[in-house]
Structures are given as C-alpha cells and as structure tokens.
Computed example of a mutant assay.
Amino acid sequence: MREIVLDTETTGFDPFAGDRIVEIGCIELNNHVATGNTFHVYINPERPMPEEAFKVHGLGDDFLRNQPKFAEVGQKFLDFVADAKLVIHNAAFDMKFLNAELEWMNLPTLPMEQALDTLEIARKRFPGSPASLDALCRRFGIDNSARTLHGALLDSEILAEVYLELIGGRQPGLVLSTSHADQGADNSGSWRPKPRPEPLRPRITEAEKAAHAAFVEKLGENSLW
C-alpha cells in the first residue's frame, strides 16, 4: 500500500484572500515503511511574503523570487502523489490550498477522500488532549528538536513517525482500542493495566480439586508430568 505523508507551507491562511503555497514536502511510504523517495520544492508565491509568515517559515522574498512558480511544478506534484493516500495533519487546510492552486492552473484537483487526516485520528484516540504535531511528538517521544522553523519536508518526516505511532507503530494491525484506557491517562501516551482490587474467585470446587488430586496420585511417580 502506497501512502504519501504531505505538508505545505503558505503565506497565510486563505488562498481565496490572496495567500499562496511557498513549499511542498512529501515522504513516500510503502506498507507503512519509508522508501526514501521524496518530493520537495520551494515555490515562488508571486506575492510578498508577510512578516508573520516569514517569522514562522524563515522564507524571504529574495529566496522565493528565484524559485519556480506553482504552474511549473503542479503536474510533477500530481505525478508523484498519483492515487496514493495522502497523510496530512489538518488535511482540510493543505487540501484547500493545493486544490486552489491546481484549479488555477487548470489541473485535476485532489478529492478529499484521498486524504487521511492525522489530526482527526489523534483527537479520536486522545480526546481532550493537545493534538498539534509538537504535542504528539512529546506524547510519543519523537525528537523534533530540529523543528525551530516550520519546513514542509522536515514536518513531513516528523509526521510520518507520528502517523506510525497513531496507527500502532510498524504493526498497525495490532492497534487496540483506547476508548477506556485513555480516560484519565497521563500525557506520556503509555498505558498499563492496574492490579485488580480483589482477586478473581476460584472456579474449581473442592470436589473437583479432590478428584484431580486422586487422579494424579494414580499416575504414579513415573508419569511424565
């Protein structure tokens, strides 16, 4: 099964208010294992980079001015993702920007059904707990110390690790229900069963015990067990 862990960086929050994508980063997974195949590109947004966005991403106008426009990389992006499931944290945001850019270039858009939102998964698994990428890194003990600025490829690499933890590590089929275990749990993400307040009552009667003892005695000392 082929999946693409994806992240974008943008100039703001709304493509229909003039904001544009400035970076796309993708990590390819095959059966939940990273293949080493990536897609990464910086994009000229054809507009000035707002100061607040520069502080978050560290991408300035002088750098972005020399990068390709989305029209030059849109088809390559589509060719890379193809029909793979797109693993995205807060998928609605990235899909909104990607489809706006694709539509402006008269390229095929991506159906929302193709996206898998790790933010939704995290909120279902840990209701009421912080579900940002940084918070999930803390929960799962994932090193995100290099994430001093938001970068699409680095965030995709981190998200790939978070995604594997959310679905049960590298053996997703072994995920157990956490609907009860997570209630009242700490933020470490680990859960351990508590001792029973009272031992279970024995189900063997005294008569059954006596019958078993008599049977074993008849076997003699040379029995194998």
Rank of each mutant, 00 (worst) to 15 (best):
P111T: 04
K124N: 10
I88C: 04
S129N: 12
N106C: 07
A211T: 09
K85F: 07
E28H: 02
T11C: 02
L219H: 07
E206C: 13
L176W: 06
R65K: 15
A185H: 01
P50F: 06
T11W: 07
E221C: 06
P50Q: 03
L149I: 13
G25T: 05
A92E: 14
I4A: 09
L6M: 08
L98H: 10
L224P: 15
G189P: 01
A84I: 03
L149F: 12
N144H: 10
T148W: 00
K218V: 09
S223F: 15
K76N: 15
E101Q: 07
T205I: 00
V73N: 01
E120N: 14
M112Y: 13
V216K: 12
A210Y: 09
L219V: 02
A92D: 11
Q183E: 15
P68E: 01
E161L: 13
D83I: 07
G74W: 06
R65M: 14
R125A: 14
S223G: 13
F77R: 04
L153N: 02
L29C: 06
T8W: 04
E161G: 09
I24Q: 08
K85Q: 09
E198L: 11
A115T: 10
G151C: 01
Y163K: 03
I88D: 09
K218G: 08
W225L: 12
A115S: 01
R201A: 14
Y163M: 04
H89P: 10
A17R: 14
L159P: 02
L110H: 08
F13Q: 05
G189T: 02
D7L: 08
P127R: 11
V73I: 12
R20Q: 13
A82T: 08
H40A: 12
D182V: 15
S190E: 15
F97C: 03
M1A: 14
E208Y: 00
Y163S: 06
I204E: 09
A131F: 05
I204N: 10
A82R: 07
S179H: 14
A146S: 10
V216G: 01
E198S: 09
Q67T: 03
K194F: 05
V87T: 06
N99G: 10
T148I: 13
M95T: 13
F63N: 07
K209T: 02
N99E: 00
P68D: 03
D14N: 06
R196M: 13
N187I: 12
F70C: 01
R147H: 06
P193K: 11
P193W: 13
P68G: 05
K85V: 14
R201P: 06
V22I: 14
P48F: 00
D83F: 15
N31G: 06
P202S: 07
R2I: 11
E113S: 13
A71C: 04
K209Y: 13
T118R: 10
I142C: 04
E51A: 15
L6P: 12
K85H: 03
E3H: 12
I204V: 12
A131G: 00
